[in-house]
Amino acid sequence: MAKTGLDGHWRGPTIVARALRDAGFEVIMIGMANTDDIVRAAVDEDVDLVGLNVGGHIDVAIRAVNSVQEARPEVPIFAGGTVPPRSVKMLQDLGVEVYPPGSQLADIVDAAQRLTATR
């Protein structure tokens, strides 16, 4: 679970991490992380799923998504955060599941279970 931006709102990622832990996931929090940090963690930790908290400019998130997909093409990515509808669409086009503010935690946990079911 990483936060792509440098603006430090931690609200979303901590709540989601907690819900995932309570559903039995091992959640590796890497905090504010740039693309290289995210890719390094995704590879070295041999993760099954990447969660991105994105905010700010969508190009930053897209760069992280592209790099993770290049390094670990088989690993699904889901994202949440302050993402306006048109950016949601851009991420979805890359195969990322997006959970904007107001999403239900239960849906996020379901998604994590579904996305990792075959792994």
């Binding site: 440098l6 693309t35 700010g56 969508i58 190009d59 930053v60």
Partner: peptide
């Protein structure tokens, strides 16, 4: 701008360069 201000970085700091669009 919070990227630069909160961390006291100039825009050419590697952490900012990595998120220049922000």
């Amino acid at each position: 701008d919070r990227n630069t201000a909160d961390h006291c970085y100039n825009v050419d700091h590697p952490e900012v360069l990595a998120r220049r669009e922000d």
